[in-house]
Amino acid sequence: MIISSLLGASLLLLAEEAPAPTARDASAPLEAASTDDGAAPASSDTPGNARVGHGRGPAGVPATFTRSTALRARIGVEPSAFEGASGVSSEGRWLASATAGYPWWGVRLQLGLRHGLSPLVEVQTALARRWRPAAGLAMLWVNLPRLRIGGEALLGWLFQSGELGRRGPNAELRVRIAAPLRRVAPYIMLGSQHTLLADRTTVIRAAGEERSWSLRGEWTGWGTVGVAVPITRRVGLDLGVDLTWVDAPETIAIPGAHGGIIIGGFRQDPGASKKRRSRGKSQSRTQSGDAASARAARVMPPYAHTGASLDPVSGGPSL
């Protein structure tokens, strides 16, 4: 019921979403990029070219920014909540999220690298009885204006206390499908979690002890339907319904729900570092930097085309 309501709400939002999602705020004037560096104005109708200029962020924060400066920073400028929904951070950005609910809680940290890759670490727990710390890699497979599909592979260790105590190496594969809209990003996450469990049997005979090991597996299927909502560009909320089936098919599936917070940022102030690097360089070097910016526009994954703002004080992106 809840899932269908969420899906229905998502479809309504999709239907109402008139402008292309590359423009994160329809109220923002669709000016061409200012050419403070001499770069050619960006076309607004291709995914790789953001509509930028002066406007207001999703949270209504007034800002000014130029696409060319964002390109020089070589970072995506999408709200962190959207990156949380798709599970992949753009290059140079980090993301931390914490979720709480019944029965699942979790903490996750990830860092955006080139080529749409994001290494991540996370700790997942169910009622503090089942713990699974893991490290992994997320990768963006499909990056369309209204559709992001990514995959994650994680390796970790399972610790479960209580009568049904379990421990062993754990691997999980996930697929995330997110639909970033203007204000929210509904997403679906499907996961397949496998744990290898080792049992030890000791036979005490008159002649002595014999010890043997055996292995068995535990499979946990995972499905989450949720929505990520940016509050500011740095901070967002994550609300979702979880359907997990631990140790399927020998058990019953217990549905759950979670709410969480997503916080994002930058590894460093790219604007400032760029300024330092370019200080004292000749005009010709600046022009070659513009050429590098143009190259960056071609390789920049995955959210470079989105609208954003630059902090007028720091020169870095304002989230």
């Binding site: 105590g165 379990r166 421990r167 062993g168 080792a198 049992d199 030890r200 049997t201 000791t202 036979v203």
Partner: peptide
């Protein structure tokens, strides 16, 4: 690693 530790 040990899950079921059975002694017979």
């Amino acid at each position: 690693c040990v899950n079921d530790d059975t002694t017979l």
